[in-house]
Design a protein around this nucleic acid. Sequence first.
DNA 1: CGCATAGTTGAACTCTCTCAACAGCCGTGG
DNA 2: CCACGGCTGTTGAGAGAGTTCAACTATGCG
Lengths: 232, 232
Amino acid sequence: MSLQLSVRNMAVLPPVRTAMEARVGRTPHDDSDALERIGTRMVLHRHQPLFQEGDQADAVYRVVSGAVRTSRVMPDGRRYVADFLFPGDFICLNDRQVRTVTAEALCDVILIRYARRQFNSSIEADRSLGRMILSILSGGLTSAQERMMLLGRKTAAERVASFLLMMAGRKESDRVELPMTREDIADYLGLTIETVSRTISQFKAKAVIQTLGAATIVIQDLSALEDLAEAA
Amino acid sequence: MSLQLSVRNMAVLPPVRTAMEARVGRTPHDDSDALERIGTRMVLHRHQPLFQEGDQADAVYRVVSGAVRTSRVMPDGRRYVADFLFPGDFICLNDRQVRTVTAEALCDVILIRYARRQFNSSIEADRSLGRMILSILSGGLTSAQERMMLLGRKTAAERVASFLLMMAGRKESDRVELPMTREDIADYLGLTIETVSRTISQFKAKAVIQTLGAATIVIQDLSALEDLAEAA
DNA sequence: CGCATAGTTGAACTCTCTCAACAGCCGTGG
DNA sequence: CCACGGCTGTTGAGAGAGTTCAACTATGCG
């Protein structure tokens, strides 16, 4: 009945992206102070699971490098990708007892693990850290709403364009690496592999983007892509 | 780029529903203690807006009675209903500065208004209240994920069945009042009015539900409805 | 080099949407 | 109190976006 969550946060590791995140990132009392002491570093290899649906949720994680996917499968096999997590993002920053998604490494990943109890103590002890977590959760809800609009009301082309812009938003360059498969993208956008593939081909035909192998796309015409995304 | 949020919480006013909510609801130090002092009661009439997209977000609200709808409109008119808020639910429990949804009364509504600054102070002052807010935000994210699965992967029949079960979940009886229009439901489920209407008609034809006017449905066969919802 | 996996493209199909007409309900005013 | 008008909801028919099934191609790893 409920899903585990993964919440994005750009506070420390990657460059800031939004007003909220910028604000958080510049908090004088940086969150890493309080958290650094209690985290343990760990490595995950490509396709290795971090945890499974149903597991006890005894830790919070933060991605240092690489990319993680959280997903869920319906009894009949339909899959839903909850989120892609990149450096700086927290995984499952909520208070659920049981995992409701499976988290897997898309490529080799380094992350920091925080035991739930210690993490909670840190939040309570450090007021600015608590505020930050609140902010991150708020931001997560906000972007969840954005995604619901996408899933409920946008066309395939708009969804794919929005997705590419999202991925591009993380970087300066016009070159975007997609560590996930087309199937992952499809399950993230509520489409099929074929539709994602066809849509990307259309964008190439229109010279909006270009591909360097399936995993790398180059944005040739950013404003055209933004128009296609029909940003609301 | 970001959406305002409305977060559900059953802690005080209505009966508890989930593990998390139950836990919160039984917190010895009840949240109403800390909040009651700073809230002001207000009344809203049917169709009256509480706030609009773009407004300054200087308050948090909590529904006492009635029902509120939050929504957003894309430039070309496509609408997305973010949430329906019922007694006990908080509206826009996040730290965004600007409203990214419009909130309107579906019927006559009583709510409590908390000035943002005082609300934030209360959270910081009262540890258990802070925990509760964190819990509510977590729960909001969890149900957002649930909804994304619905929007991305479920069929029209599954969506409508899930919706009816959601609405029924708030009550003991098998009689469910729907204060929102078919259009609201459609925009909430990512469907059209016609599809919602047709699906409800199908359910009636199968004797799964029954209607007493458009606004009241009676669940005749709960397990059949649950099957239709294909609960994941 | 060769196989397996991932991605692309084509064609037919289907679910949902769109457009359109009709029906039912409710409040207002005669 | 009933009749009218407007709004909300229902039903029908046709169209279209995206899916499904299937074949083919490219890529990457042993």
